[in-house]
């Protein structure tokens, strides 16, 4: 009898215990990124950007060159890196507070310039690292530490739909929203990330994949319920959709 490994840890994923909370979506997405880096054989020319948020230490898990970035500034840092080293594969991994609040100017202008790098945008509708405060993506009525009675759109506005907003721009090559609520959608997410990688590798310009993801601790739910919440409620407000996609197979 010979044993065949049907599944192994991707080479670009370091053999570390992740510090993310049980049921968090970051680990799933990290693994997909690592698999794609391996599949495209990109480890030797990848530079990633991790801005402030739970995933600021993503370099502890992903075995590629990494730069931290100040809160929200990942699109500017990625612009600097990609312009300096156009032959490298560059991606930024941003959360919703980072990208849609403090870094809104940077993401819009990087997208508008058509910067040829890839943004992986984790939308879990809440600030995680700082302890569950209201994000620009927090759903109406959702409780957070800075909206203890639930988000009131009258005083705090409505959740911002980033993909729809960026889709008004001419330059971006790919804009898509997906979610990691189930094995089937994890596979779909990987396919979309693959397209985004291809966009960059083919020199098409700016690509962004928004991934609806659970944060059980600050969604105040059990992990399974958080997955269901993403599927039923989060995706009801943020429709899962490919807005545009210019990569060729």
């Amino acid at each position: 009898m010979t044993e065949t490994a049907l599944y192994t840890r991707p080479q670009s994923l370091l053999d570390m215990d992740m510090f993310y909370c049980p049921g968090c979506g970051h680990g799933i997405v990290h693994k997909l990124i690592a698999e794609l880096i391996d599949e495209f054989d990109l480890r030797g020319r990848t530079i990633a950007v991790a801005p402030v948020g739970c995933s600021v230490t993503a370099y502890d898990y992903l075995d590629v060159d990494f730069s931290e970035s100040a809160h929200g500034r990942a699109p500017a840092v990625a612009t600097g890196i990609k312009r300096a080293r156009p032959d490298c594969f560059v991606f930024a991994y941003q959360g919703d507070g980072d990208l849609a609040s403090i870094g809104m100017a940077e993401i819009i202008h990087a997208a508008n310039r058509g910067e040829n790098y890839t943004t992986i945008f984790i939308n879990n509708t809440v600030y995680g690292m700082t302890g569950g405060q209201m994000a620009p993506t927090t759903l109406p009525g959702q409780k957070a530490s800075t909206c203890p009675e639930g988000r009131d759109p009258v005083t705090t506005g409505y959740p911002i739909r980033i993909c729809e907003m960026l889709n008004t721009l001419q330059a971006p090559a790919m804009i898509a929203r997906t979610m990691v609520d189930s094995p089937a959608n994890v596979r779909k997410t990987k396919q979309l990330l693959k397209k985004a990688f291809q966009c960059q590798l083919q020199g098409k310009g700016f690509s962004l994949v928004e991934i609806l993801s659970p944060c059980p601790v600050y969604m105040r739910m059990e992990p399974k319920a958080a997955m269901e919440h993403v599927r039923k409620n989060v995706s009801a407000y943020f429709p899962v959709k490919v807005f545009r996609e210019l990569a060729t197979e």
Binding site: A70, R73, V77, R83, E106
Partner: peptide
């Protein structure tokens, strides 16, 4: 060589940060 008119001073210095991290004179 690289010239970018940034959207803000904040973005410009962070572009410098990225290019410097990539080993270039920025």
């Amino acid at each position: 060589r690289v010239f970018v008119q940034a959207e803000s001073e904040v973005a410009a210095i962070n572009m410098v940060y990225g290019a410097a991290a990539a080993g270039k004179r920025a």
